[in-house]
Design a protein around this nucleic acid. Sequence first.
RNA 1: GGACGGGUGGCCGAGUGGUCUAAGGCGGCGGUCUUGAAAACCGCUGUACGGGAAACCGUACCGGGGGUUCGAAUCCCUCCCCGUCCGCCA
Length: 428
Amino acid sequence: MLDRRFVVENPDLVEQNCQRRGARADVRRFVQLEADRKSKQFEVDELNRRANEVSKSIGKAKDPAEREARKNEGRALREQTAAAQAELDAVVAEADAILRTMPNLSHPDAPVGADDQSNLELRRGSAEPPKFDFKPLDHVELAERLQLIDFEAGAKVTGHGFYFLKNEAVLLELALQRYALDLLVREGFTPTITPDLARNEILQGTGYIPRGPETQIYSIAETDLSLVATAEITLGGLYAGEILDAAALPIKLCGISHCYRTEAGAGGRASRGLYRVHQFTKVEMFAYTLPEASEDMLNYFCDLECQLFDGLGIAYRVVDTATGDLGGPAYRKFDLEAWMPGRGEAGEYGEVTSTSNCTDYQARRLGIRFRTGEKGTAFVHTLNGTAIAISRALITLLENYQQPDGSVAVPEALRAWVGKERIAAPGQ
RNA sequence: GGACGGGUGGCCGAGUGGUCUAAGGCGGCGGUCUUGAAAACCGCUGUACGGGAAACCGUACCGGGGGUUCGAAUCCCUCCCCGUCCGCCA
């Protein structure tokens, strides 16, 4: 969330930012509520002070009648205090509710626009989209012919949007994990496998909304737990409430988790096959940095994502995400869109990774700070980035590496882990 | 899952209803002494919000939430976490 004082001091700027990002937040109301909060807090403090004085005088009083009189006085004061406190709580609750709807500020260079139509292409990868002298199949068809993914079984056992990976698809999943991890460990990331569930307060701290009609999150009945949508949630929660040693920053972590998404409201649009599923595995990068270091870290994350897809020989483009498409916590976001020959009429780019600089937006909510000199603390910056989202990476591999005979070549970079050069249909 | 014991400042740890404005120690900062350092000694040393030019003052915070009371770190309820033992289990 934003710094409440910053909002009060810069209402016009915040309002403009909300508008650019398509967020409806009543900034004026918030400013008014903050003023109310201040005066109400003063009132509560004053009542508490008087009540405390009375309580102390009772401890010293000897005369029983005097004590009784003072007790009554104290009781009356405490009742007034409770009433004022209730009013204060109501003001705070309303102000907080508005504050939570305010997205992070936006990087001045982020393209302004309502949706992904305004995304700005920054660069392309080293590989070219493949040229086929046959009609390429999409990954659903390929996976069926090669017996790699069983969507029908997933639907029967669990529901639409679930699937069984089988045979070489399993080897590809594990190979992709190892491939990503190899690079990240070389780059000094601490590898982790995180819980797949997290407390709702951690979800909220990272900017996810655990319950409600529009939630993308599966929650566990009769608990305060939810299935995570990404290891960003668990890695962000890792240091919640802690004060980090500035000398230890940046902290670079990568986490493997399963990711669960309800995809509420996504029905019908481009939801064929693996592109939009309710469960997938992801290797996620995460960093805690000093404020002045987060911009470089974002570029670094983006470079690593490019390295991974260049290494796989997949064509992609990098886009600077438009303000209206940023999501709440991101200050700036770069997406990698990889070439998917089976998507659309004659192939399309589809999002495969995403990296965001969330500045102090998550850290403020999660209470993650570092020491600044002798006294004082400041909030760290947090960043996240996809190393490999397995399901979408599988789409790109199957569709880009398909051969005229219906088999799929295994990219050089993965062969050691897959253990073969080519995935062929059974009996072929 | 059950029983018992715990959760207190950056860290360790005392504290069973009012002088807690949280003892004591460690660490940190400043000073005295010293050629310098160490040791010793003296002083300072939590966070947030509000008031004030400042010194300083007020309020809240002892795992989270709720309750009892004029008054709660302390008593009660509840949840979370840690430890020990038991049960179950890949």
